[in-house]
């Protein structure tokens, strides 16, 4: 678990870690979503605005993994409209008319709050069958957003907090972002 959380409580972090493993489980030597850092990823998504610039869009052009200066860790400043969209998406519209051009919007923070209520604070200590049952009773919105976040955590770039030690990409034999090295003509065309 990361030492400083942005949004989740330590208890919620433990719940998310356990629940994520039910969706994307460990297999043999390959870590599941919990060990890949799903809770850190979700902490970064829900707490994106705890730092400025917020953790929404990585910088560019190169991560440094295949050469070039490593710049993805420097997140980008948002335009005023992007900030409005992302605060609304994450925090919800909260009755603010400036965020309700098409009516109220439930934010990720609210959707997760409902999800935590359905999963229960004791989730991590339950039998897998009971865990799955609790997950089934959570709202459809929560299950959708949570699953997308878990996948992003496992197989997205590590700068967002998941894919710890690139173990997600290694498991699926995906080399990741390869710029500026790219692939040679031979690598593109040959079977190997």
């Amino acid at each position: 678990m990361s030492t400083s959380l942005r949004y989740l409580t330590a208890e919620q972090h433990r719940v998310v870690t356990a629940a994520a493993d039910r969706l994307v489980p460990p297999l043999d030597a390959h870590p599941g979503a919990g060990a890949l850092g799903a809770a850190d990823y979700i902490d970064g998504a829900l707490g994106a605005f705890a730092t400025n610039p917020p953790l929404v869009f990585t910088g560019g052009p190169f991560s440094g993994r295949f050469g070039g200066d490593a710049r993805w860790g420097e997140f980008m400043a948002l335009t005023p409209l992007e900030e409005l969209a992302w605060r609304t998406r994450i925090e919800g519209s909260r009755g603010d008319p400036a965020r309700e051009w098409n009516g109220p919007v439930r934010g990720w923070q609210e959707i997760y709050a409902d999800g935590f209520a359905a999963l229960g604070a004791d989730f991590a200590d339950l039998d897998p069958a009971v865990q799955d049952e609790r997950l089934r009773t959570a709202s459809r919105d929560f299950r959708t957003v949570f699953y997308e976040h878990v996948c992003e955590a496992c197989y997205g770039p590590p700068e967002y907090g998941g894919n710890r030690d690139l173990a997600g990409w290694r498991a699926i034999q995906f080399p990741g972002d390869v710029q500026p090295r790219g692939w040679t003509d031979e690598e593109v065309s040959s079977r190997e």
């Binding site: 869009f57 990585t58 560019g60 991560s63």
Partner: peptide
Amino acid sequence: DLLGHLSNDEIKFLRRHFLGPDPLLEP
């Protein structure tokens, strides 16, 4: 010159509407 904002980041380009239009703003 290019600004250097473009990259191979699947979350930024395919999940978070970096290039717009954000469907929340412009449904």
